[in-house]
């Protein structure tokens, strides 16, 4: 499980990790043994905790083995049990990943290192929160930008100048969420008597994507089973003296794609509909 790979990083941040499902202790034991899971998997067979949290999925028919499942999601709690952050998807086939949450909450990138591109105005390093992706995983695509001394670029809300723009090239393999930009700094330009929202020195722009179902991803994989996502960063850089021509820097992320693991617990441990 992706969470296990990020366990050490979460522990380093001082967070405990636990995961609740309606599975029996026997199922959880089998699963954690097979997957090498070391954090607590908690067995809520009658969905008591799931109900107490208001997470019971009411759209599941009561006479099926799936009745009792929660809406899946993640809470980050502080030491007193108060929710600091929560991550729930609209569709249960999609899920936030621990690495995406780490990237969003703590900055540092968890997974795949990317490429570094240098232009006359800046140095750009692209990376992603995961190196290997599966159907339904939500991950962050990141561009860390370091402007050369004296340079600034314009924030998205600027008027009259070309703003920085982080774009992903749409393909059926993923669903993209709007890019997130940091708060801008107001810069006063003496020469023209204007105050404009800009970025200087270093900052980060990122956008989340969710990996689409297998049938949509497969046709786009390379022979090696890799998925490539492309995008671009457009900007206009200026220094105290002049503005330079707008630039578009191509961006590229490559992931290893893995089909979902469908291995189940032994038949005698599997959950049955009520009354069977």
């Amino acid at each position: 499980m992706e969470l296990q790979q990020n366990l050490e990083k979460l522990h380093k941040r001082g967070l405990g990790v636990a995961a609740v499902s309606y599975d029996s202790v026997a199922v959880l034991k089998d699963f954690s043994g097979r997957k090498g899971i070391t954090y607590p998997l908690l067995s809520d067979t009658d969905s008591k905790a799931i109900r107490a949290y208001g997470l019971l999925n009411e759209s599941v028919a009561k006479n099926t083995a799936q009745y009792g499942i929660p809406y899946p999601g993640t809470f980050v709690l502080d030491k007193s049990g108060v929710v600091v952050e929560k991550y729930f998807e609209k569709d249960f086939r999609q899920r936030y990943t621990a690495s995406e949450i780490l990237t969003r909450r703590y900055g540092g990138v968890a997974g795949a290192p990317g490429q570094t591109i240098e232009t006359r105005h800046l140095r750009l390093t692209s990376s992603a929160s995961l190196g290997t992706v599966h159907w339904g995983e939500r991950l962050a695509l990141v561009a860390d930008i370091e402007l050369k001394p004296g340079m600034h670029v314009y924030a998205p809300e600027v008027r009259g100048y070309i703003p920085i723009q982080f774009t992903l090239t749409a393909t059926p393999a993923f669903q993209a969420f709007p890019a997130g930009y940091p708060p801008a700094r107001m810069l006063h330009l003496k020469a023209i008597g204007e105050t404009v929202p800009v970025y200087q020195s270093s900052f980060r722009v990122a956008a989340d994507i969710t990996i689409a179902p297998e049938a949509q991803v497969k046709p786009l994989l390379s022979p090696e089973g890799d998925l490539t996502v492309e995008g671009s960063l457009r900007y206009q850089a200026c220094d105290a003296k002049q503005c330079y021509l707008p630039q578009t820097v191509p961006l590229k992320w490559t992931f290893h794609y893995q089909a979902l693991d469908r291995q189940r617990v032994p038949a005698e441990l599997q959950r049955h509909p009520p009354g069977q």
Partner: peptide, 25 residues
């Protein structure tokens, strides 16, 4: 098989508590 309450799961700064569909589907 060990019983765990919420308090026993916290790290020094808090807890990431995940609810997931099932380990077997």
């Amino acid at each position: 098989g060990q019983s765990r309450n919420l308090h026993s799961l916290f790290g020094p700064k808090g807890l990431m508590l995940v609810f997931f569909r099932s380990a077997d589907w």
